[in-house]
Amino acid sequence: MELKFYIESGIIESFVLGLATEEEVEELQHMRRLYPELDTEVEFVERRLERAAFDEPAMPPVEIRERVLQKIRWEEGHGHSDPSSNYTFINIQPKDGNHILVHRWWKIFFIIFFIMSKVFLFLAIFYYLKYRMSQEQQRSDNLHQMIRQEQTQSPLL
């Protein structure tokens, strides 16, 4: 009798529509454990609501189905390859023979190559200037030495 009163209170309908509070949901789940026949009643209510909704379905536009299914196909394509998948692969590569397709590692290689070439260029200029300076220094040292030698020889003359 108490269970009948509980069912007739509309608690199941409230749960099914998502209007029951957390406490009410907990209570209902507790009652379902105590009285398994409540499960049948929940199923009755859900089936009634399902029948009511199915009585007047309104199909969403076709593109909505496509969007939903596209997601499934995309997941499949990234999870495991399915030969039955009806994906259409569109090749957007120009066919004029002027373009080539390379691996993405080439991009990193070219960046490193570019940086290294700049470093070597800098070092080359640096050592060239250093070499030039040392040559100048040596030439001026030689010149000084020659002048000094001339100066030491001239008093004797």
Binding site: F15, L17, E46, L49
Partner: peptide, 29 residues
Amino acid sequence: VVKVFHWSFLHIGTFRTSGHRTLFTWLLR
């Protein structure tokens, strides 16, 4: 509709613990 179905594909594992007996009312919620 798109969001509900995407959600359902990801969370179908929670149906059994949701307390619902039919997929329809689980989706309706």
